[in-house]
Computed example of a mutant assay.
Amino acid sequence: MGPGSVFYNKSMILFQDEWILVISKPAGLLSIRDGYNPNLPTIQGVLEPKLGKLWMIHRLDKDTSGIMVLARTSEAHKNLDRQFAERKVRKIYYAICVGVPEWDEILIQSPLRVNGDRKHRTVVDFEHGKPAETHVRVISRYGFYTWVEVHPHSGYTHQIRAHLSSIGYPLLGDSLYRIPPNCAVIPPKAENLPAFPRVALHAYALTFSHPNSGEEITFTAPLPEDFSSLL
């Protein structure tokens, strides 16, 4: 039994046909191979022995759970890759941010620069950054944290984490992106926050055109237990 067997479960497969495979990726599973530790389980390593050749279209961070689409033919791969490149794919994420904002909705439009510091973080950079937009809507407020729905209109690495932390509301469990020192938002004390072993981010929904029929389709991934236990 290989190291990836712990991740495989039939429930992670949400839809499949001749052209695409839609999955709910569990937290802890890599989208692509780790260059420093190539033996860690990946999506293709877990699924290809059971389902055959798969093409990766997009990625989720190791700690992020949720919806992903993979191609099952080279033609579907080219079609979906083009949809992502042209930003025709709509994405919805659920996140838990630290703190309780007064706003109900906000559009964050700060330009971002990927790999912008020594920690390889994506940073807000008004001089050299690229245009980026993230729409955030509050779903529910709790004592010291908030459940939000997030629509990233651009698709930069760590965009959601970088944008929310830049306005004073980093994600629960995120040790890499913190509130900037010049931010007016005062965060709650750590002892008032629930312990969470990963970044509290879940890719909830994905809308795209089927690569064969052209029909617009939407898939959603149910919240994992660790995330839903906070709500």
Score class of each variant (00 low, 15 high):
128 H>D: 13
132 A>R: 05
149 E>I: 01
172 L>C: 04
132 A>Q: 07
115 N>I: 00
199 V>L: 10
197 P>N: 13
178 R>L: 14
144 F>I: 00
179 I>A: 05
183 C>M: 06
130 K>V: 09
195 A>V: 12
194 P>R: 08
110 S>W: 09
136 V>M: 04
110 S>R: 12
115 N>L: 12
117 D>Q: 07
116 G>I: 11
205 A>M: 14
182 N>Q: 14
178 R>C: 04
172 L>E: 05
172 L>K: 05
182 N>L: 12
198 R>N: 09
184 A>Q: 13
159 Q>N: 11
201 L>G: 03
147 W>Y: 09
136 V>W: 05
106 I>D: 01
166 S>L: 06
175 S>G: 08
139 I>R: 09
143 G>Q: 14
164 L>Y: 06
136 V>D: 02
207 T>H: 04
180 P>V: 11
200 A>N: 05
107 L>A: 14
171 L>S: 03
147 W>E: 12
137 R>W: 05
204 Y>N: 08
120 H>G: 00
115 N>W: 13
158 H>E: 11
193 L>A: 09
126 F>K: 13
170 P>Y: 08
158 H>R: 08
177 Y>V: 07
166 S>D: 10
112 L>E: 08
177 Y>C: 06
115 N>T: 00
181 P>S: 13
189 K>L: 14
185 V>T: 13
190 A>F: 08
175 S>D: 15
171 L>P: 02
148 V>P: 01
194 P>N: 07
125 D>E: 08
174 D>M: 07
137 R>V: 11
136 V>L: 08
157 T>P: 00
114 V>R: 13
196 F>N: 04
160 I>Y: 03
121 R>P: 04
206 L>T: 02
134 T>V: 10
115 N>E: 14
147 W>P: 00
198 R>H: 10
141 R>V: 08
198 R>D: 05
154 S>Q: 12
111 P>D: 10
141 R>E: 09
114 V>I: 15
137 R>P: 00
109 Q>R: 14
123 V>I: 15
188 P>E: 11
162 A>I: 08
176 L>W: 02
131 P>Y: 10
208 F>T: 05
159 Q>S: 07
137 R>A: 14
188 P>Q: 13
133 E>I: 10
119 K>D: 15
109 Q>K: 14
182 N>D: 15
159 Q>P: 07
189 K>M: 14
173 G>V: 08
121 R>S: 06
206 L>D: 01
136 V>I: 13
117 D>R: 05
159 Q>H: 10
170 P>L: 06
188 P>V: 12
157 T>Y: 09
144 F>D: 12
191 E>R: 12
170 P>S: 09
178 R>P: 00
156 Y>F: 15
110 S>E: 15
146 T>G: 03
192 N>I: 02
165 S>G: 03
174 D>G: 04
133 E>W: 12
168 G>D: 09
157 T>I: 11
158 H>D: 06
171 L>M: 13
157 T>L: 11
196 F>G: 03
174 D>V: 10
109 Q>F: 01
180 P>E: 09
115 N>G: 15
179 I>G: 04
